[in-house]
Design a protein around this nucleic acid. Structure first.
Length: 557
RNA sequence: GGGGACGUAUUUCAGCUGGUUAGAACGCUGCCCUGUCACGGCAGAGGUCGCGAGUUCGAGUCUCGUCGUCCCCGCCA
């Protein structure tokens, strides 16, 4: 018995044909209606009585036109009159109905992933992901890149350095344009847009100008969006890192709405700062239409700001009748007015100001916290135009950032990132002023990728490693082979890596990367279906000469 | 490591200020009806209220701990 048609493909034009279809019995999202006539096909009818939801069946029959068409169904003009019914397999009652709309907790969906994936939406998402990746490969091939695989198993390097070492070495080897769509692994805590294993479009090219790399990526993204039926225009706009932080309080700003930040420290006189126990800078924004926010809503914003380590949050309500502020007594009517004006607030707006002492990654925490509130308010006030696709290149990153945990300067991106030529002399004397040749690609508030023009001269690479505090000995031990390779005629080169899962997520209209990864993990990095990670058989450990140490619980005080 | 939300029947949820036999819908089982497509009708099964302590005459409800899922901060060289 051979399947002749897909259920979902049958249409009015097939009327009168004999057909054999195979598939699952979905009682609610059936793709083709099958009819069993009690008199004429008594045997099949009797058998059909035994069939339950999610049974796997084959039906032999004839396509006929329906008496009454069902416009809800793609195959709604016809139905299949069953002559014979074969049960190919039975099925337990599933824990949730297999239908378009998700009706189960994510925990249940992940545990029964095979049933979750049986729904039409995961099929659409994974098919789109496939088409996007296929298009990426096509574009890269058209642009003269060749895909080269690099080792996953290699010597110990600082985490992630592996990826850079090998693709840079391919440049030294004259490959000129390399790319790879490849699985990456990272040991970080998870998020809606982060999984411990994910896929990148990684590329590297020789003799590039920054704009050459941008052009390649813009071509890739325009074409990938095209696959999803989304039209975007290239080139993408550029902004400096310092400017996005100050304007949007984020290194991955969502440009689908405005509500920019303003530095308003000068609106707070010294004595007010003392009374309010303010420290550090103050950033503010004007939230359109939020002047009517209740006390509770303001409290919630304050609480959110404080949870993000803000010193405080201060509000000005702008109404046609005038200004009212939670800090009017502290800063005076004149400064309240100045504050509202600084944010360009109009009647109906709510001005939200945030102060914070600390610096995060060398940037003012107040700006970053205000940036978080901007996102929350943008969502709450429905300011985000979901039909927009706002790409942005960010450049001008600092080369180093201060690590509070290590009390030292560390690479903001990675230690192979190129250094802006005129800043080279400050490498030892004023490292915090040195700018890198790194760049990020951002879409709608998500970081899609990050790259740089690399260091290609051995002497500069060595100077950088030393500026990072690596000793000659550490340097030889960890990067010896790489530094040696650099001495054999390394061309200028640079590249970038894009997060394929995030791209697939955004182009599918999903809010979580898990919706475009077939076998996704929980935020604790567990696979609820396979029950992984799991204990390893002692014999397997013995073979490798490994022992598992029991977890050491912190002693109680 | 920190903050927040959630955890009650197969599933999705309700359960007010603690009070007697813990409810609904979906699904499931049986019967009936039936050219239906969210079919309809009747009957029924199904619950350690995540787990463990505590407070109380009495805990699904309050407190603490713990486990799990999700969101966020830190982290993402």
């Amino acid at each position: 018995m051979k399947r002749t048609h897909y259920c979902g493909e049958l249409r009015a034009k097939d009327e009168g044909r004999d057909a054999i279809v195979m598939g699952w019995v979905h009682r609610r999202t059936g793709l083709v209606q099958v009819v069993f006539n009690k008199e004429r096909q008594a045997a099949a009818h009797a058998k059909a009585e035994q069939v339950r939801s999610e049974f796997v069946v084959a039906v032999e029959g004839k396509i006929v036109k329906r008496q009454k068409a069902n416009p809800e169904l793609a195959s709604g003009e016809i139905e299949l009159v069953a002559m014979k019914l074969h049960t190919l397999n039975n099925a337990k009652t599933p824990p949730f109905a297999i239908e378009e709309e998700i009706n189960a907790a994510e925990e249940t969906r992940l545990r029964f992933r095979y049933l979750d994936l049986r729904r039409p939406k995961p099929h659409r998402n994974l098919a789109l992901r496939h088409k996007i990746i296929l298009e990426m490969r096509k574009v890269m091939d058209e642009l003269g890149f060749i895909e080269v695989e690099t080792p996953m198993l290699t010597r110990s390097t600082p985490e992630g350095a592996r990826d850079y070492l090998f693709k840079q070495i391919l440049m030294i080897s004259g490959f000129d344009k390399y790319f790879q769509i490849v699985r990456c692994f990272r040991d970080e805590d998870l998020r809606a847009d982060r999984q411990p294993e994910f896929t990148q479009l990684d590329l590297e090219m020789s003799f590039p100008r920054q704009e050459d790399i941008f052009h390649v990526i813009e071509t890739v993204m325009v074409r990938a969006c095209g696959v999803a039926g989304i039209k975007v225009a290239a080139p993408f706009p550029h902004m400096l890192y310092m400017d996005v932080i100050r304007k949007y309080g984020s290194d991955k700003p969502d440009l689908r709405f405005g509500m920019e930040l303003h530095e308003v420290r000068s609106c707070f006189p010294e004595e007010a700062k003392q009374k309010l126990q303010m420290e550090g800078n103050v950033f503010a924004l004007a939230a359109p239409g939020a002047a009517g926010y209740s006390r509770k809503q303001l409290d919630d914003l304050t609480e959110k700001a404080k949870a993000l380590k803000a010193r405080g949050a201060y509000f000005v309500k702008v109404t046609p009748e005038g200004l009212t502020s939670t800090v009017e007594k502290m800063i005076g009517a004149e400064n309240v007015k100045k504050l509202a004006e600084a944010c360009g607030a109009k009647p109906g707006d709510l001005v939200v100001a945030v102060s914070a002492k600390e610096q995060i990654k060398g940037t003012e925490a107040a700006a970053l916290i205000a940036g978080q509130l901007r996102l929350q308010l943008g969502e709450a006030l429905n300011l985000i135009d979901k039909s927009q696709w706002k790409f942005l290149w960010i450049t001008g990153f600092p080369l180093f950032e201060w690590s509070e945990t290590d009390k030292t300067w560390v690479s903001a991106q990675h230690p192979f990132t190129g250094i802006v030529d005129e800043d080279l002399e400050k490498l030892e004397s004023a490292p915090w002023e040195v700018r890198s040749k790194g760049y990020d690609l951002v879409l709608n508030g998500y970081e899609l990728g990050s790259g740089s023009i690399r260091i290609h001269r051995q002497d500069i690479q060595e100077r950088l490693f030393k500026a990072l505090g690596l000793s000659e000995e550490q340097l030889r031990r960890r990067f010896g082979f790489f530094l040696e390779a650099l001495t054999y005629g390394t061309p200028p080169h640079g590249g970038i890596a894009l997060g394929v899962d995030r791209i697939a997520m955004l182009l599918s209209g999903e809010k979580s990367i898990r919706e475009v990864i077939a076998f996704a993990k929980t935020t604790a990095a567990q696979d609820l279906m396979a029950d992984s990670p799991s204990e390893v058989d002692p014999g397997q450990l013995d073979e490798l000469g490994l022992a598992v140490k029991p977890e050491v619980k912190k002693a109680a005080e």
